[in-house]
Design a protein around this nucleic acid. Sequence first.
DNA 1: GTCGATGATTAGCA
DNA 2: TGCTAATCATCGAC
Length: 444
Amino acid sequence: MDEQPRLMHSHAGVGMTGHPGLPQHMQEGAGGADGDGRKQDIGDILQQIMTITDQSLDEAQARKHALNCHRMKPALFNVLCEIKEKTVLSIRGAQEEEPPDAQLMRLDNMLLAEGVSGPEKGGGSAAAAAAAAASGGAGADNSAEHSDYRAKLSQIRQIYHTELEKYEQACNEFTTHVMNLLREQSRTRPISPKEIERMVSIIHRKFSSIQMQLKQSTCEAVMILRSRFLDARRKRRNFNKQATEILNEYFYSHLSNPYPSEEAKEELAKKCSITVSQVQGSHPHPPIVCSCSVSNWFGNKRIRYKKNIGKFQEEANMYAAKTAVNAANVSSHGSQANSPSTPNSAGSAGSFNMSNSGDLFMSVQSLNGDSYQGAQVGANVQSQVDTLRHVISQTGGYSDGLTANQMYSPQGINANGGWQDATTPSSVTSPTEGPGSVHSDTSN
DNA sequence: GTCGATGATTAGCA
DNA sequence: TGCTAATCATCGAC
């Protein structure tokens, strides 16, 4: 392998005036007595090179060896190298000078930031932290999501490193192979060490472009994972039946003013087990159990109820009855169960008690009321109203305020399309204030 | 795949 | 700041 440089150097500087490394007898031009003979030598060598492929392997090997040992070989090698250098390589060289790849740097930075490359971060990546912050802290369900995220990220990281290792190994192997091949080839072809170096750098570039693809794919995978995780909060999860029932109970029992206070919302959220995964992302203070979804729910409910009262009538009816029955039960047990506080009122939990009866009355009455817009009151409503009246009269003694002749506005919605007293919903006097509030509600 | 229901988001308003 | 209204996007039944 090292024979070539040695051969080259052994002839270098021997009588060279023009081409370095070219023996003097080759530089003396066509003139002179032995000029023709030298031309003949070169011609012979070239001829042998040209016909080398036509020969058998053994013959070619022998020729090759003869050529390698030929006294003119180093000089010829140098000349060819020089010519090659001046033509092909100079063109190549101009293209090879590239600035450091900005995209590769970006990818590297991103992988580092995501914790895929570089030292492994104990708690996952910055993305995980950001995701945690975005989803409102460390809820129980979130920790599971985080661990899931971390596990997947770690998987990506592992794949990335395995692949990277493979690429590096393949790159080294291929480089060594090519270098060996070129060195071997340089015995018979004009391949200078410089060109070998250049070839190595070309190989490295090719491999780094493959590496960049790997990095790009990894970044994409991380982005997908991250977006999936971060957008999880955006995904809609239906509340379970129980939660919906609790919210509906509250809504229909506060129909005149379905604007729960913050405390009531939080209480409802707790009761409904509405978790941070259902938190509206824009809210700055999401507690572990958050009322934001409750706000959403009430907002949606109010709108949808108002838009299509008739459609919700049956539901209203059902919850009114349910609430009345609950109230009856509470009363019969001689205790006042607590329910989530009505707007800005002393709150209570558990099934909704008689404090809500004012709304219930209104709801029930409105089922029967002439002014009820679009109410499709079924034939059973009247009997239900009677039953409820009976129940309510037993529980709270509010029957005084409840007469079938009373006119109620459509479920508390005024002529302007808004709820009565809904201009300042959260500060409105609650119907829970007592029997008086029933009148105040119903008077609307 | 369609469609209604429904939770979430957004702009605009008071 | 909280509400309404419109809209988006997803779920779940069919």
